[in-house]
C-alpha cells in the first residue's frame, strides 16, 4: 500500500478522493464528540468540569507524539529506500505536529493551574514534551535553512531520527520518574483504567482530531507536490529557452 503511494500522480488522485471524505468524517466525529465531552460526559468527582480539558489536551498530546513517530517512519523511508513521497510526508507533518504539541502544552497549563495549583512544573513529562516541541522547531528550522531540497530532506531526516530518542522518554516519563503529571490511564499493558463514561468520549474526540490531522497532512502534501510540479515546469522552460 505504501509503495502504491510512491507515485505522486497516484497519490494526487487518491488524496483528491480521500480528502473530502476524511474531512467529513472529522466534522461528524466532532459533532458527536464535542457535546459529549462538554455536556453529556459526567464531571470528574474531584476536579469537576475542569477535567473536561482532558478531551482536547489528551488528543493533542497523542497527535504530537504520533505525528513525530510518523515523521520518523517517513525519515527512515526517505533515507533507506529513497521513497519518493516520504520527505514530502515528513515535511507536511512537522508544522501540524508542532502545533498540536503547543496546544498540548498550553491546555496542559490551563488544566494544571486548577488541578495542581501550578501553571508549569519541571517534571519529567512536561519537560520532555517541551523538548519535543523544541525538536519540532529545530526540524522546521533545518528545512528552512537548506536551499537544496534533496539535501534539506536528508538533513532533516537525520535530525528527526536523532530526536526520535525523545519519544520513549516522553511516553515512559510518568513511569520512570516521580511526576506530578498522572500516569498512563489508557495506553497501558493491562488495558485502560479510565472509566468508560470518560473513555468513550475521549476516544471519539481523539479519533476526530486524528481525522482532522490526517486531512491536514494530506492537504499539505498536495501543496508540496503541486509546488514541485510548478518548479520543475519553470525549470524545464528556462532550460528550453
Amino acid at each position: 500500500m505504501i509503495s502504491g503511494f510512491a507515485n505522486p500522480e497516484r497519490f494526487m488522485r487518491l488524496s483528491a478522493k480521500l480528502l473530502p471524505w476524511i474531512s467529513g468524517v472529522a466534522v461528524a466525529l466532532f459533532a458527536v464528540g464535542l457535546p459529549w465531552a462538554l455536556y453529556f460526559a459526567p464531571p470528574d468527582y474531584q476536579q469537576h468540569d475542569s477535567a473536561r480539558i482532558m478531551y482536547v489536551h489528551v488528543p493533542a498530546a497523542w497527535l504530537a507524539m504520533a505525528l513525530y513517530a510518523g515523521m520518523a517512519a517517513a525519515s527512515v523511508s526517505s533515507l533507506v529506500w529513497r521513497h519518493a513521497l516520504a520527505d514530502v510526508a515528513a515535511r507536511a507533518m512537522a508544522p501540524i505536529g508542532a502545533a498540536f504539541t503547543a496546544v498540548c502544552l498550553v491546555t496542559g497549563a490551563l488544566w494544571g493551574q486548577p488541578m495542581w495549583g501550578a501553571w508549569w512544573v519541571w517534571d519529567a513529562r512536561l519537560t520532555s514534551v517541551l523538548v519535543l516541541f523544541f525538536v519540532y522547531l529545530g526540524y522546521l528550522a533545518l528545512w528552512a535553512a537548506i536551499e537544496d531540497e534533496t539535501r534539506a530532506s536528508r538533513a532533516a531526516a537525520i535530525l528527526c531520527l536523532v530526536g526520535a530518542a525523545n519519544l520513549p522518554i516522553v511516553k515512559f516519563s510518568v513511569d520512570w520518574w516521580n511526576t506530578l503529571h498522572q500516569p498512563a490511564s489508557v495506553f497501558r499493558a493491562d488495558g485502560p483504567t479510565m472509566h468508560p463514561s470518560l473513555l468513550h468520549p475521549l476516544l471519539v474526540m481523539a479519533l476526530a482530531f486524528t481525522c482532522a490531522a490526517a486531512a491536514l497532512v494530506l492537504a499539505e502534501m498536495r501543496v508540496f507536490i503541486l509546488r514541485r510540479r510548478a518548479e520543475s515546469l519553470t525549470l524545464r522552460r528556462r532550460r528550453a529557452t
Binding site: 519537560t127 523538548v131 523544541f134 525538536v135 529545530g138 528550522a141 533545518l142 530526536g163 522518554i169
Partner: peptide, 9 residues
Amino acid sequence: ILVLPFLAA
C-alpha cells in the same frame, strides 16, 4: 536551535 533540546538531558 538544533542542539539545545538535546543538551537538555
